[in-house]
């Protein structure tokens, strides 16, 4: 059983147990354009909610990816280092960025659900 939440910084978080998988939304990937480089956090690194965790660069721009929830990084999607275009092809699936062990479930609960996020994007 997994649940997906979204941030106003256009990240998604999928929670399974206490493991959170994080990536950027389809809207964000479309806005960024063709992704050419991704810098990912090392396993073991501790990040706070809202802290800089990764970097995504498109042909056009560089952009930080913030950790929507705090915790300890358990894995990163090293496939993106050789195939950054996966972020555009499947941003909310194979284009995930990193996983972390969530330290506070309340942080997750505060984020937008899918309907609220879609509504938020419509208003931009």
């Amino acid at each position: 059983m997994s649940e997906v939440r979204f941030t106003d910084q256009h990240e998604w978080v999928r929670l399974e147990g206490d493991e959170a998988t994080i990536g950027i939304t389809r809207h964000a990937a479309e806005q960024l354009g063709d992704v050419v480089f991704v810098e990912l956090p090392q396993a073991g690194r501790k990040v706070g909610a809202g802290g800089e965790a990764a970097v995504v660069e498109s042909v056009k721009a560089a952009s930080e990816v913030y950790a929507p929830v705090g915790g300890e990084v358990t894995a990163s999607n090293s496939a993106l280092e050789t195939e950054p275009a996966k972020v555009n092809e499947d941003p909310e699936g194979a284009g995930w960025f990193f996983k972390l062990k969530l330290s506070d479930k309340a942080e997750f609960a505060k984020l937008m659900d899918e309907a609220a996020y879609r509504e938020f994007v419509k208003g931009l």
């Binding site: 910084q9 256009h10 950027i24 964000a28 806005q31 056009k60 930080e64 913030y66």
Partner: peptide, 12 residues
Amino acid sequence: MTPFWRTRDSIL
């Protein structure tokens, strides 16, 4: 992530 319109790109 930083929205596209607030990124560090030179043109933008």
